[in-house]
Computed example of a mutant assay.
Amino acid sequence: MIKANNLKKTYGDLEVLKGVDLHIQKQEIVSIVGASGAGKTTLLQLLGTLDVPSNITESSLEINGVNVNGLNDKNLAKFRNEHIGFIFQFHQLLPEFTALENVCIPAFIKKTHKKEAEKKAKELLDFLGLSHRFEHKPNALSGGEQQRVAVARSLINSPSVVFADEPSGNLDSESAENLHQLFFKLREEFEQTFVLVTHNKDLAAMADRCLTMVDGRMV
């Protein structure tokens, strides 16, 4: 599913990633842990194609059989929209739109017909226990509900892999536990692969594999 080799990232004189190799299987749930500043979020941004390695000609990144380093900007954006889902610590919902509209946005970018997108969004929100919240805007939702809307949004285009950066870091303990259980339920239901960056030891321990980063390297 994901094959990354020799990923490096520097910002000026600061070497954040020092040559990371990572292979993840289809439907695997992998957690990445490490101290702040270890390079976890930077790695997730490279894997999610939100950023590019500093050594792009000397590294490789293959997702779902596609060499993403070889794609131009237009094709990369299309690939990201269709194959990759993102969940962030701060849900990044657009406040002026309802839960249903927020979930539909990636589908609209994909040019999915409005009726089809809304049908899929409603199915996802219903699956996540939010069928009574379709028309509510983010400020009318609890933190856990907002994060579940963000999860639905990440799944709307049926991505091959979902990247989550501290997905439960802004939730109370009960909501965090519910979200953690949800990832495993989603894996069984939709056959997604999940890569989770987290400081939550319980979530990290639940994953199929827990990888540790120290000073820009996997250890």
Rank of each mutant, 00 (worst) to 15 (best):
T42H: 04
G65V: 10
V195M: 12
G39I: 04
A164T: 11
G12R: 12
K201P: 01
T193M: 09
L155G: 10
L171F: 08
G19H: 02
Q92M: 09
E96G: 01
K3G: 00
F184N: 08
G19T: 05
S173E: 08
E123Y: 05
R217C: 06
L93F: 05
G169S: 13
E62S: 13
L93I: 05
S158V: 05
E135S: 05
E116A: 15
V149H: 00
A176I: 03
A205Q: 14
Q27I: 00
F86R: 02
I32K: 09
A77Y: 00
L130Y: 12
E118A: 14
D13T: 14
K78V: 06
L130T: 04
F79L: 06
G143D: 07
T198Y: 14
H180D: 10
F163R: 14
D126I: 04
K115E: 15
V151Q: 04
N69H: 10
K201I: 05
G216C: 08
D126W: 07
K119P: 01
A4C: 03
P95T: 03
T49W: 13
E123L: 08
L44E: 10
K185W: 00
F90Y: 14
K40Y: 00
V161R: 07
S168F: 10
N102M: 02
K114C: 01
K122R: 15
I56T: 14
G216D: 10
K9M: 07
D208H: 14
E188N: 15
V151H: 03
L76C: 06
M218K: 02
N6E: 02
S60F: 11
I2M: 04
G144I: 08
L155V: 04
A164G: 13
S142A: 03
D202Q: 08
V161Y: 10
D172Q: 06
F97E: 03
G12I: 12
V161C: 07
A107E: 11
S175C: 04
N67Y: 06
